[in-house]
Design a protein around this nucleic acid. Structure first.
Lengths: 298, 298
DNA sequence: CCAAACCTCTGACTATAATCAGAGAAAATG
DNA sequence: CATTTTCTCTGATTATAGTCAGAGGTTTGG
């Protein structure tokens, strides 16, 4: 990789940890232990289960418990057993806690303003545009794509969302029972495989392959969560699936799709897929695509 | 200010403290106290005075002293009295320390690469361009402009650099003795005033006014360090000087300049200054400019 | 040459962050 | 229904971060 790119990223990291990181902690702390302030903030106005606090802030359970006791002692939060699962406890802000959080909110605004006020209007707009770009691309870079068992909750979640979206978008809805199957076992090695994309441990996309020995490999279940679109994740999933297919000895990948899925069709076309005659009787499909894998992979 | 701008800056702050800040610390630490790692890094390959370590890392003298003892005990640095001033001590990396710092260097590269590798080439280039923009504009926002006594080391430094630059750029060089005076007392209230711009406590620019009762105020000594150009600092100094002049009751500001100072001339023109006939006999000047202050200040 | 300012260090101390083992209650599993 | 797993908590303990006062040597400025 170009050394100059790495050097620029490092300059950025440096100034940003100095300027944003250090100040952010300082503003958030305001004569309270930083850990407590973070917890107070993370609980949020609607309350939050202790276990999700633990995973989001990545804290030791004993440590978090003590922080919660301290905040409780200060009258800023209450902690009560959850209704659905009595092992889980839920932390909620008291009115004093809400007031305290509002102060933190204002301090965060003040920090943001301290970046903007010294600049003139043109500079401000350029800064904000560049920040937005950095935010988007850093987010994209945080997305991890990995193999997943079809029965895993992440996989189930993606399938559910995928079917729901198809049902919303297809004329006349989507009926899985008349569609070509892709059961769990068909998406598990050796019959096939499933990839999921996750962002901060949340599932945000998937894609699967069904192998057919020497016949073309089928591509199924390509989906990216609406909140994560425009980050190039679909393209990454597609590329990884093709790489997996190649590794499995496939020479050709093919797929069918519905005319309403325009972004997907654009993606396939721009990734080297060419439209071919219908190769199956999928009732929801309008287009069939195929890509030979041995030509220069991109 | 536009709330949407503030919100975007906050989103940026959030992701960047999470992603860059936390990981940066983690990479830097590698089973050593973070404070020690920072000191080790900051000492650099050429060594560093203890006092400048203290100011750059903003550490308590006792605390830093202990960190240095610890690094010394680990055989990573040596600390010896400085030659010029025996109160000051200078820390230097041993060969083991240099090796350790090289490891930190590689880890920083690895962190930067972890942002880049998941992206495709177009995304990479956009990320790096946006990072560069953010870096520049955050730097610009860190610049502080304030009144300064002409005898202060910062002011002296700027003047020295300013004269040196004029001498380099003017045809036939610059001779202060034949130039119109601007001695310390002329740039101190009530006769005038001096502003300096600083970035991380380092002087990087200046500008001054000489008041003449009801006659136009003179603008002198506008200079920005080459390393800090293109950040809009000259324009900010100019605007602050005009505000000061207005506060002092001035209605008009005027200045003379040399034809070789093209960026300055562009700045004056775009800030509402109009060229007028020579109003003094400054031998180095080719252009004379004037701006009425009571018309809408920008 | 003397007083003031400066630089670094040590000692003594406090607060915060973090880890680990295990207890007790509740839910999931088979 | 017995077993395992999950979730939160307490107790015990350690590491790290940070502060403050003052000692002892060095330089600066009048």
């Amino acid at each position: 990789m170009d050394l100059e790119l790495v050097a620029q990223v490092r300059r950025f990291n440096r100034i940003v940890t100095q300027r944003v990181g250090a100040l952010d902690d300082h503003y958030l702390a305001r004569d309270r232990p930083l850990g407590e302030a973070r917890v107070l903030w993370e609980i949020g106005p609607d309350g939050c289960d202790v276990r999700s606090l633990r995973s989001r802030l990545d804290l030791d359970s004993g440590y978090l418990s003590r922080l919660l006791r301290s905040l409780e002692g200060a009258g800023l939060i209450t902690v009560e057993p959850s209704e659905s699962d009595k092992r889980v406890r839920t932390a909620r802000l008291t009115s004093a806690g809400l007031a305290e959080r509002a102060v933190l909110d204002q301090l965060s605004d003040a920090l943001a303003l301290s970046f903007l006020t010294p600049l003139d209007e043109g500079q401000r707009n350029r800064l904000v545009a560049a920040m937005s770009e950095v935010e988007r691309l850093l987010t994209a870079a945080m997305v991890q794509i990995s193999r997943q068992d079809p029965a895993h909750p992440h996989a189930r979640h993606c399938m559910r969302e995928y079917f729901a979206e198809l049902d919303r978008r297809f004329e006349g809805g989507f009926d899985p029972s008349v569609s070509i199957s892709a059961d769990d076992d068909e998406l598990r090695p050796p019959a096939g495989l499933l990839l999921t994309a996750t962002l901060r441990s949340e599932p945000i996309g998937c894609g699967a392959l069904k192998f057919h020995d020497d016949k073309p490999t089928e591509l199924k279940r390509m989906w990216v969560a609406p909140s994560a679109r425009g980050l190039g994740i679909g393209r990454r999933i597609l590329a990884e699936l093709e790489a997996e297919a190649l590794r499995n000895g496939s020479r050709v990948v093919r797929l069918e799709t519905n005319k309403s899925l325009t972004e997907a069709i654009t993606l396939y076309r721009s990734s080297g897929y060419v439209e071919v005659d219908a190769f199956n009787e999928e009732p929801h499909a309008h287009h069939w695509f195929e890509k030979p894998l041995d030509v220069a992979p991109r």
